[in-house]
Design a protein around this nucleic acid. Sequence first.
RNA 1: CGGAGCGUAGCUCAGCCUGGCAGAGCACUUGGUUUGGGACCAAGACGUCGCAGGUUCAAAUCCUGUCGCUCCGACCA
Length: 571
Amino acid sequence: MRWSRTLIPTLKETPAEAEIVSHKLLLRAGLVRKLTGGLYTFLPLGLRALRKVEQIVREEMNRAGALELLMPALQPPEIWQQSGRYETAQEVLYKVRDRAKKEWVLGPTHEEVITTLVAGEINSYRQMPKNFYQIQVKFRDEIRPRFGLMRAKEFIMKDAYSFDATDEAAQASYHKMYDAYARIFQRCGLKAIPVEADTGVMGGKFSHEFMVPAAAGENEVAFCDGCGYAANVEKATSAVEKCCDQTIEGEVEKFATPGVVTIEALSQPPYEVPAARQIKTLVYLAASKPVLILLRGDDQLNEAKLTGALGTATFRAAEAEEIFATLGAHPGSLGAVGVTHLPVYADERLRETVEMTTGANADGFHLRHVAIGRDIQVAHWADLRLVRAGEACPKCGKSLKIQRAIEVGHVFKLGTKYSLAMNALFLDESGKQQPAIMGCYGIGVTRTLQAVIEQRHDDNGIIWPISVAPYTVCITPLNTAPESAVMQCAERIYAELTECGVDAILDDRNERPGVKFKDSELVGFPIRVGIGEKSLAKGEVEIKPRGGTLVSLKADEAVEKVLSLIADSAG
RNA sequence: CGGAGCGUAGCUCAGCCUGGCAGAGCACUUGGUUUGGGACCAAGACGUCGCAGGUUCAAAUCCUGUCGCUCCGACCA
């Protein structure tokens, strides 16, 4: 490709809309342009990089035995009603109507479609295992699109769905995908770590997310340097001591605490009750019914864990007025002592604790000498707390670290939720009808592309790995007059590289050298071949790997050198 | 949806407080000089000041409404 013939609208200045570095570089390097919030056009260069990521995904999925197909983005709402997700996923569903006023949905994901297909086509254990995948546009009515391609209303996802006859086989399918994902991200030049993930309302089964560590990430991951334990903080646990070593000193006693409405204030003089000896009482509305949630004063609630404990994701913190109507006191003076009309959920860490202090359900009063069990009836015990950096790893006891990360992939053992709902049944060896056991596996392809930029850049621009670079080599003649020796040399190298199957771009613009160098580094081509009057007078050209050091060599050896650099990186 | 901020040329932004000719830099066009790290000179083209209403002799500027965008929180690949 000749630079002058394609469209690479690089920007010297950063568009005001971009906040994180990868978003800025997507725009500055001329890879994408925004149509409107959460919707982007891929320009020629951005599309080339995207296609390369897709191709890596495709090759590794095929290698793992998955079968590519393509499902409709436009879907009938009936199948969503059948799976029950027409209700539970309604916030993210884009709905459209045709001229007959019939409603349709734009698919945010494809479990319903694939399971409908499989229900019709797979009837015997002999036809399994099967794993179907596609690379397709997804539509999600995101609450807040942000960071360019990172969270968009429309994005490209690779989604795969496995169907197995037995649990062991489903396990094997899962691990195949896990391994394929590790290869995919590695080939994209990404450091992505698999972490244990929360399974949300699906519950029960297991799940891993592939996380790219980055300050701009929207997730937090807890990990242990000692044993390699890594988990999304939504899921992470730590080996904290559960029980305090106190003995009961007396009966519950009410005392006045005028104006004290925070854990912090109660820990100060004159009260001096350590946060660890307080019980924090939260009121949530689960399916519109109030529940009490108890945590140790110095712990934070993990709402993902609460989802699991409540068995529903439709809950929210109650408003102050709702709380007053329920308990007769305002936040800051709440407690569960003597509360029998509401279900009480308590964090495991409070189990058997005594000599605790908590709100009295009367504004301006607290209770001391509170003993869990004796004074508070807990209906459900669960792990509800958020882990914190520095706590002990649940596996090996070393100190946990917490880091932000971008979720680029997710592997999930689904079980039979969809196969039962959509009637994807088969006959097993003994002629018995069984639901297929499913797994689903997603990779955010557009997000992965941006994650590569987020992880691989410097002050001058993107540093593409050869595997996903829009062009591998940028040939930069400093004189573009057609008859000049410099340009003729550039043309020869360009032709030879292209002949060898190398993706090369020839910067034939009549620009000053500085402009060309800056642009090639901003866009981040892995290898630049520079050809100028001075060095060419000595028969030499220059090869500069992006982020590496420049070498001068004979013009005749340039192509060979480039090929060996490419071969090295592939190895 | 709650909180915060911003909408002026393709991009970055000034002008708004205190109403009075719509501006700068970059990018673009033409000519010239330049040519190894985002050049220089000259001439030019480019605007519904987000939109609607109001106040006023006069509104980018003040008021009301509205739409859009960005950031923080809840959703997720």
